[in-house]
């Protein structure tokens, strides 16, 4: 994950009550979703950024997960996500990020 993004997430975790924070990912494939979720939940696997060893354990979801989709009004979903829900492998993405949440 981008180093500036990691710094910003670390700052947010220090600024806000962690219980109020939710991280939403938009990764296109399970490989990149796994790295992003791992970085936010257990720490940067490349040990390059601010989240190395951070173990923030922030609640993290892929935006295409059914749990998230259910909260988003249909018209907004159609405009912002639209056919991407068909193009990307939503089930695999959801399973990857859910698996990482279980490690929190």
């Amino acid at each position: 994950m981008d180093l500036q993004t990691q710094e910003a997430i670390l700052r947010a975790s220090q600024t806000y009550d962690k219980a109020d924070l939710v991280v939403l990912l938009g990764s296109p494939d399970p490989e990149s979703a796994e790295i992003a979720a791992e970085t936010v939940i257990v720490g940067d696997p490349s040990y390059a950024g601010a989240l190395a060893g951070a173990q923030l354990g922030l609640p993290t979801y892929h935006v295409l997960e059914e749990l998230i989709h259910a909260d988003i009004p249909d018209d907004v979903w159609e405009a912002q996500i639209g056919v991407m829900a068909d193009v990307l492998e939503a089930d695999a993405l959801a399973a990857t990020v859910a698996g990482m949440r279980a490690q929190a």
């Binding site: 405009a79 912002q80 996500i81 639209g82 056919v83 991407m84």
Partner: peptide
């Protein structure tokens, strides 16, 4: 790609 088209990949 107009400013108003936003960032959604499909748009």
């Amino acid at each position: 790609h107009k400013v108003s088209a936003g960032g959604a990949a499909a748009e």
